[in-house]
């Protein structure tokens, strides 16, 4: 190479570690060449999802758990008017907030109705949209009847008609599977992607999200009933017992998920996510509430427990979504995951 050419190249492109000019040959002497992949450029792209999505996951989980608890109370003959009221209004508010958050996150929010063009059972995003439509309508009907019973619509003919025409028990039983689907599908939505951390855990992602949804919902109910000084004694006892049991189920599922994720779960313990996941979820949202629930019950302690579980559930969803971004941006994680038997294969058994 002529000296003039070499000088031009050096001034334009800088130098490699050994002082030779950098060209597009990328020979073995190029220190960056030896790592697997293409100069660290992520081979897959991360989802753009912003804060609305983890908040929706949290709210959807709470709606699912609230529906589960109130329907079971209804079916098992535990009549507590305050519990029913809180449950129905909560579902309605959750089903108003959820679509708002999801539409907000769209690149073209004004086209949200295109979600209703088709229903694709293999697209968790499609299933999610439709389940929100169905559960939203059912919770709307139930909340309308509650409003009529509470006299919010006035003591008139319309209120009496709503109370007579809306079969509350049948609707709550119909709403239960849809609500549970909304809660679990938040996990399916993440696992059905090419992101190693999410896809690796396909079997346990949805159960973990649902368990966390139920535990946050029970804590939410307990918190609201305590703050309003509503609800029967028995409701509080049952809530406390159920909270303890579901947090245990959640702890087992989170632990199993971490085992299943293995090396691809590393982002959860990264510098950015560890405070959320270890501090917020594992310690704040699971360990501390379990310790608090085992002692003697006081109102303040219950309120503290509920707040911890709710924040822990929120931290869990942020950790999962943000961890997935780190996982998608890590070429090594994707290449090792998609190099052989690690990635989910069609012939795998459930």
């Amino acid at each position: 190479m002529a000296d003039a050419t070499r000088e031009t190249l050096q001034s334009r492109n800088g130098h490699l570690d050994d002082g030779s000019p950098e060209t597009s040959h990328h020979t073995r002497t190029d220190s960056k060449r030896d790592e697997k992949g293409y100069y660290g450029v992520p081979p897959i792209k991360a989802a753009h999802w912003t804060w609305q999505i983890p908040i929706y996951f949290w709210i959807g989980g709470i709606a699912a758990g609230v529906q589960l608890f109130t329907t079971l109370a209804n079916v098992l003959g535990h009549e507590d008017k305050a519990l029913t009221r809180v449950g129905r209004y909560t579902s309605l508010v959750a089903m108003i907030l959820s679509p708002i958050l999801l539409i907000w996150d769209l690149g073209r929010p004004e086209r949200f109705y295109n979600m209703m063009r088709v229903w694709k059972l293999r697209s968790p995003m499609s299933n999610q949209s439709w389940s929100l439509v169905i559960y939203g309508n059912l919770s709307g009907l139930l909340a309308a009847r509650q409003a009529a019973e509470d006299g919010l619509l006035g003591r008139n003919f319309l209120s009496r008609l709503l109370i007579q025409l809306i079969p509350a028990k049948v609707l709550s039983i119909l709403a239960l599977p849809v609500a549970l689907f909304v809660g679990s599908n938040t996990g399916t939505l993440l696992s059905a992607t090419s992101v190693p951390m999410w896809a690796r855990n396909w079997a346990l992602m949805a159960p973990t999200f649902l368990a966390s949804g139920v535990s946050t919902a029970l804590s939410y109910l307990s918190l609201v009933l305590h703050l309003g000084r509503w609800g029967e004694e028995k409701t509080h006892t049952v809530l406390r017992r159920a909270e303890r049991a579901t947090i245990l189920v959640e702890a087992v599922l989170v632990a199993a998920s971490l085992v299943r994720m293995g090396r691809w779960g590393k982002p959860l313990f990264s510098k950015e996510i560890a405070p959320l996941f270890v501090g917020g979820t594992l310690i704040g949202g699971i360990a501390a509430p379990l310790a608090l629930l085992s002692g003697k019950e006081t109102r303040n302690k219950s309120i503290l427990t509920s707040v911890l579980v709710l924040l822990g559930g929120l931290a869990f969803r942020f950790a999962m979504v943000l961890g997935g971004r780190i996982s998608a941006n890590d070429p090594e994680a994707y290449f090792s995951f998609a190099s052989g038997e690690n990635a989910p294969q069609p012939e795998d058994k459930v």
Binding site: P43, L121, R122, S123, P124, S184, G187, T188, S191, A192, T193, S194, A199, W202, A203, M205, A206, Y334, F335, A338, S339, G340, A343, P344, Q345, P346, D348, V350
Partner: peptide
Amino acid sequence: ARHPFLPQAKVKGS
């Protein structure tokens, strides 16, 4: 990737 996969193959399992 050497063996990219179809993520939706696992929706039913989920």
